[in-house]
Design a protein around this nucleic acid. Structure first.
Lengths: 228, 228
DNA sequence: CACTATTTTTAGGTACACCTAATCCTATAA
DNA sequence: TTATAGGATTAGGTGTACCTAAAAATAGTG
């Protein structure tokens, strides 16, 4: 028996696994997509895909991309769990703002041990979601599938709850945070304009927000039943 | 103007600076001592001493060892501050034991930002010492000199307070922790045997502890006035 | 002072993770 | 079906940080 599970892969390896998971979901990730996400060259990604396969973390076929094996998926989810728990801690206990937690957590997730992670989970009382609304994988490496869809795909007249917000862009988080468009809040969808993709929503205070296509794609929502 | 202060040196660089600071105090550290502390070869240390000098972090003369410049000292103390604050956090908020905090902090100190560090200090209410009794350098990079001396240099009949304990050996911490020989506690020195360096102390509960030379050197004490 | 033991340095090499430039596939569109 | 654009791979190279083995310098001892 080999020891993928016990030996801690380098932090680069972890970054690749997370990137593959994020861009490919269950399927295969292309070198280009992974390269873009990690801001490195495709050539480097090709090289690493080979090494990841040696390690049994991905299935890789030349010109066909790489997909996570069970080991690879487990490792990716372990890092995602760390990341999201750390983000939660940073906001709840250290007073970090919405926008700043991602970068700090990105560095920390490679330095903390599993013991640290589980003690943190304990301290935070085992949260199910992080501050951006993302689900936190459990310690045994499971993650229930998300049932939300982007606001850009909503229909006029619907009432929806914000479930999560893409945390990749600091300026997006900034904008949404200032306007109270954060997970948990309820919105009425007033208009979804096919022409330019603009979505107009009304918050509980009656305030209307016109959101461009990219913003509407960064906000994930679930339909809710009628107002009380 | 160059940018030593702003650019974050690699974690190796930081480890070297801390090692130099620990083995040399104000003076010059030999390649051998640093190599031993970091568990690497002397040849590697020679190479790094050169690079550290290029970076303006140490003064280095071949065959004479390396000593920290102002920049190097500031950087070392910044890491020491991080390390000791993290140790304090791990014990006080995550329930880590005395023995386990060092290893975890050693990895974390390279991943956290200055912002994280200062927010942590805030959360901990700006402690002056870490759980082992070591002084925590201030954010502006000053560290008041320690006024304690090893128990091995105490004299029979003295009453002393444990100020700090060397945190390098897990088994030492284990042993001392089990017996309550931790910073803050008061001891009566009963005997200091020149022959074998054994020191016999009596704690406040009247329990006697014979401590071998190495243990006595790991415990730092200050004299206290007579019993109340 | 000379010899020896210890310490330090040099020489040459490895692994990792990246890069650019050039070549090679693959899928699409004419 | 064949040309071509875009993506993927190979080839060759860089910097960091380590290693071992051999050579050189220093420090201690008779």
């Amino acid at each position: 028996m080999s020891d993928y599970a016990t030996a801690e892969p380098s932090s680069s390896v972890g970054d690749y696994l997370k990137a593959i998971w994020e861009v490919a979901g269950g399927g295969a990730a292309s070198t280009k997509d992974v390269a873009e996400r990690l801001s490195i060259s495709s050539a480097s990604v090709t090289g690493m895909f080979g090494r990841l396969q040696e390690m049994g973390l991905v299935r890789y076929e030349r010109y066909r991309g790489a997909s996570l094996t069970q080991h690879g998926l487990a490792e990716a989810l372990r890092l995602v769990r760390r990341h999201r728990l750390i983000e939660t801690f940073l906001m709840e206990h250290l007073g970090y703002s919405w926008q700043d937690v991602h970068a700090e957590a990105e560095r920390l997730e490679h330095a903390v041990s599993d013991e640290f992670t589980e003690r943190l989970a304990e301290l935070l009382e085992h949260p199910g979601r992080d501050p951006h609304g993302d689900l936190i994988p459990t310690a045994d490496g499971t993650l229930v599938p998300e049932s939300s869809s982007p606001l850009s795909e909503a229909e006029a007249g619907q009432r929806v709850r914000i479930v999560k917000v893409n945390d990749e862009s600091v300026s997006v988080l900034n904008y949404l945070g200032e306007r109270g468009l954060i997970p948990g809040h309820i919105l009425a969808v007033r208009e979804v304009r096919a022409l330019d993709g603009v979505v107009i929503v009304e918050d509980e205070g009656g305030e209307k927000h016109p959101l461009g296509e990219s913003l509407a794609r960064a906000i994930f929502v679930q339909p809710v039943s009628d107002p009380a």
